[in-house]
């Protein structure tokens, strides 16, 4: 029975593992995807108002940027553990941690995008009778979109990687498969879950690149928008 062999021999690459544990792998991948997606979406929703706040002047910019940078310094294991008393062992804990991390990149990029909107464009819109809300929604945000989406790409890729650490509270998507496989030295499971995780990051990056091209066709002709490093 050659079929049983690769599981028994504990090979690195084992197709039989993939087929026999397909439901388990699919569940873990699905959990990984939704935790990442929810975290990045909430991250975007939180970072836009924070960037608008930071834009109001140095008095706001320094604390907002300082705080979001400081958050990134906190090791992920510590972040998830510090949130434990607040959330208990739940997916909300992992999502909260990931949202906090994504803010570092997202707030910077949204701010860079908003600041890159030419003053003449704002003046023209005001002259046409645009109020502040309409100016933001119909002029500034669309023009800031390339920088925002560039930030979303970086944030998504790093969130996919960080989600694995959520396995410390049992909500780590593919990380949930890696953790027990280390203690039992189950090579095929560690490798398969790791490869899936990297693939997930790649696919997400490509999908977002597609979205970026679709939403901001005008950027393709010229130079890509340059975004300051995180």
């Amino acid at each position: 029975m050659a079929v049983r062999n690769c599981l028994v021999a504990n090979d690195w690459i084992c197709w039989d593992y993939v087929t026999s544990r397909a439901p388990e792998l699919a569940d873990a991948t699905l959990e990984h995807v939704w935790i990442t997606a929810v975290s990045v979406l909430i991250g975007v929703a939180v970072s836009v108002p924070l960037a608008l706040l930071a834009r109001r002047g140095r008095r706001w910019a320094a604390p907002v940027l300082g705080l979001t940078t400081l958050l990134y310094t906190i090791p992920s294991l510590a972040m998830f553990s510090l949130l434990l008393p607040l959330f208990g062992l739940s997916a909300a804990l992992v999502v909260t941690g990931l949202v906090l991390y994504s803010l570092t990149i997202l707030v910077r990029n949204v701010l860079a995008g908003l600041e890159a909107v030419p003053e003449e464009v704002r003046e023209a819109a005001r002259g046409m009778g645009y109020g502040p809300a309409r100016l933001l929604w119909q002029v500034e945000l669309p023009l800031a979109l390339p920088a925002l989406l560039a930030g979303v790409r970086i944030a998504t890729v790093s969130t996919v990687a960080l989600t694995t650490v959520g396995s410390i509270v049992g909500k780590g998507g593919l990380g949930n498969l890696i953790a027990p496989a280390v203690s039992s030295s189950f090579k095929a499971q560690v490798l398969t879950a790791s490869v899936l995780c990297v693939l997930l990051a790649l696919v997400a990056d490509l999908l977002l690149l597609g979205l970026q091209r679709m939403l901001t066709p005008w950027t393709r002709a010229g130079r890509p928008v340059r975004v300051k490093g995180a």
């Binding site: 970086i154 890729v157 790093s158 996919v160 990687a161 960080l162 694995t164 650490v165 396995s167 593919l174 990380g175 890696i178 953790a179 496989a181 280390v182 030295s185 189950f186 090579k187 560690v190 490798l191 879950a193 790791s194 995780c197 990297v198 990051a201 790649l202 990056d205």
Partner: peptide, 16 residues
């Protein structure tokens, strides 16, 4: 570097 999960890399080393 951001895309590669630290945890997965460590796990791979620990089963090697």
């Amino acid at each position: 570097g951001r895309a590669v999960p630290v945890f997965a890399v460590l796990a791979l080393f620990m089963v090697s």
